[in-house]
């Protein structure tokens, strides 16, 4: 969806140029569709200002050594000149060569796969259950959507206190039944499991709702016909439900991947990246670079651009794979 925005504007400029030329012929795209272009214009301008300019600026910064200390500014009596320089791709090569980036990248991939996989499986299971007629269905639906309706920072703080090693409710219950307490957020491996659990809890309702919508769009006749032909429940699921869900699934999995890859709030609010920086994903590490001590704008911008490149490559590969399966979007 990023590309249409860009090509859209290019086409807009094109069309405008051609319109002047075509006016005599009275059949140019602009004169024919001028109203549509006029309606689109505000969106194009806003997108350019809010997305295009910062993006270009971010790329430009990532090619310099700009920090809070060497960017020029005037504050009252203090005048500080700009002294940052163009350093080419050094930030990128530096990041890619560092253990930090590699370690964070591997963990981000594990984190994304675990979270999206569990989101989808649990979402699918719950949606299937809620899709069949039963008593109090509306009430179950409301309860299952609740985690999504609560502001996520509130949920994360609640989880953090539930998981507190010394005074948390969960460890309290474990102790009460005579089990040893677990360092949910204090041990690197447990902390990773904990943040994944929190994110799964937060993300399942969205998946469930999206899939439920997809399920209800599958015509009931298909199931009836399959049943007539003697298809087992598993066969019906395998050959009707899954293919029928594919348009919805492919979209929500892609969305979920992008959201999870950049899921800043869960990591930052639950562990601050600890213990020992072990739960930092790429975005939280980039934030650390930008906001700790004297801010390193160039380095954090280069990490941001790298994240963008990784996600773009992933999206392209994903689309190719879907197209090979006969998907058109």
């Amino acid at each position: 969806m990023a590309t249409p925005v860009v090509t859209g504007t290019a086409a807009g400029g094109d069309a405008r140029g051609r319109a002047r030329h075509d006016r005599a012929a009275k059949s140019g795209p602009l004169s024919r569709h001028w109203y549509a272009w006029a309606m689109v214009l505000p969106v194009v301008v806003v997108t350019l200002v809010l997305v295009g300019y910062p993006l270009v600026r971010g790329v430009a910064l990532s090619l310099t050594d700009a920090t809070e200390a060497n960017m020029g500014r005037t504050i009252g009596v203090n005048v500080i000149p700009s002294t940052y320089e163009f350093i080419g791709l050094k930030n990128y090569t530096g990041a890619l060569a560092s253990d930090e980036f590699r370690g964070r990248f591997i963990w981000t991939i594990i984190w994304t796969i675990c979270c999206v996989g569990l989101h989808y499986l649990l979402g699918l299971g719950l949606a299937m259950m809620l899709n069949r007629p039963m008593r109090f269905r509306a009430i179950y639906r409301v309860f299952l959507v609740l985690p999504w309706a609560v502001p996520s920072f509130v949920s994360i703080f609640i989880w953090r206190y539930l998981l507190n090693g010394e005074f948390g409710v969960i460890n309290g219950m474990l102790r009460d039944v005579g089990l040893p307490a677990i360092g949910w957020l204090d041990d690197p491996t447990m902390a990773k499991i904990s943040v994944i659990a929190i994110n799964v809890w937060l993300g399942v309702p969205f998946m469930m709702l999206a899939i439920l919508g997809g399920l209800q769009a599958i015509p009931g006749e298909l199931y009836e016909a399959a049943e007539m032909d003697g298809a087992s429940a598993f066969q019906r699921f395998r050959h009707i439900t899954l293919p029928g869900l594919r348009p919805v699934s492919s979209t929500v999995v892609l969305l979920g991947t992008i959201w999870t890859f950049n899921q800043f709030a869960v990591i930052w609010l639950a562990t601050q990246g600890g213990p020992g920086g072990e739960t930092n994903i790429l975005v939280t590490e980039a934030y650390r670079l930008a906001f700790q001590g004297i801010r390193d704008y160039a380095k954090s911008a280069s990490w941001g651009i790298l994240i963008l490149i990784i996600l773009s490559v992933m999206a392209v590969v994903y689309r190719r794979a879907l197209r090979r399966h006969g998907e058109v979007w």
Binding site: V5, L50, G58, T74, S300, G304
Partner: peptide, 26 residues
């Protein structure tokens, strides 16, 4: 994929805020 762009945009928006409003008040 608009989200992808906005991810970078937010990283870059910082920088924007920095430079765009640097001058001004004396």
């Amino acid at each position: 994929m608009r989200r992808v762009i906005s991810a970078v945009a937010s990283a870059a928006a910082l920088a924007l805020a920095v430079t765009a409003c640097g001058g001004g008040t004396s």
